[in-house]
Amino acid sequence: MTEQTGRAKFLPRHLPSRELFAEGHRGCQGCGEALALRQLLEVAGPDTIVCSCTGCVEIISSPYPETAWRVPWIHVAFENAAAVAAGVEAGIKILRKKGRYPADRRINVIALAGDGGTADIGFQALSGALERWHDFTYICTDNEAYMNTGIQRSSSTPYGASTTTSPAGKISIGQQTQKKDMPMIVAAHDIPYVATCCPSYPLDLIKKARRAFETIGPTYLHVFCPCPVGWRHPSDMSVEIGRLAVKAGVFPLFEIADGKLKLNRKMDKRKPVVEYLETQGRFSHLKPEDVEEIQRRVDENYQRLVHRAECDAGGIDRSRH
């Protein structure tokens, strides 16, 4: 294993004394979303307002009378995290202008949604908020299905995955459509910063989150979050599976800053996707020819990204991270 957790940055004395996403949340054992949130909030810091959509994160973090949040947090509904964040951002902006909010205090306004809340039901609100150029960061924690309601397929569920509403059966391989490419759809709004990240690569995630929060204008982080329950893998594999997804090119780490795409890990030799797929029960029914088809698609997509990165003025970062 060559990737680093960055020893210098994680000296115990540098660690925060208090988690902003607190222990005692009701996330399942090995929850990739909870892990991602912890890391993201370390970067965001206390001057943050989180607008959460309905879903796992909302349920596990706010069981009245308890809350896992140590930053101000609001949940309104499922389909409107971006719209609520837009209102929060606009409200702060005008109150600041009118002298009723500290002038020099920058607040990270975060819209937080799962893949269903982003790629399906919250799609319109997201697009609208990006287009209106609100100064906020939209974070999609993608666990590739509606986990909170019981593992139903979303448009972010990958081809071949078995879910409760795209079950593998005698005449079906499960999900029959391709995963909606949210980062690219978001990037098409020409916002200043879009990035994919995964808590298995915390340094990469932290770097991207910091840039997203610091950037003025709309920014988007698409965070790959393994789900032991929904993906049917042992809870201790959550980090390893994220790593495999990246190494196999299933979930490439890249960022698009000011329109230029940069592949954060250029891998000349990727792991075969089967090594990723075989770790999870949701793919256990796939036949070799299905795996071949998935490999073909992954290769195609990865090559497209490499090509784009090369076209975008040598934006490939070959340094280790």
Partner: peptide
């Protein structure tokens, strides 16, 4: 010796604390 902190950064439950000797 360097306390790589992986157990801390990868804990989804914020259930790692630094003790007096710097161990998690």
């Amino acid at each position: 010796k360097s306390k790589c902190a992986r157990c801390w950064i990868y804990c989804p439950d914020a259930a790692r604390r630094v003790d007096e000797d710097g161990y998690f």
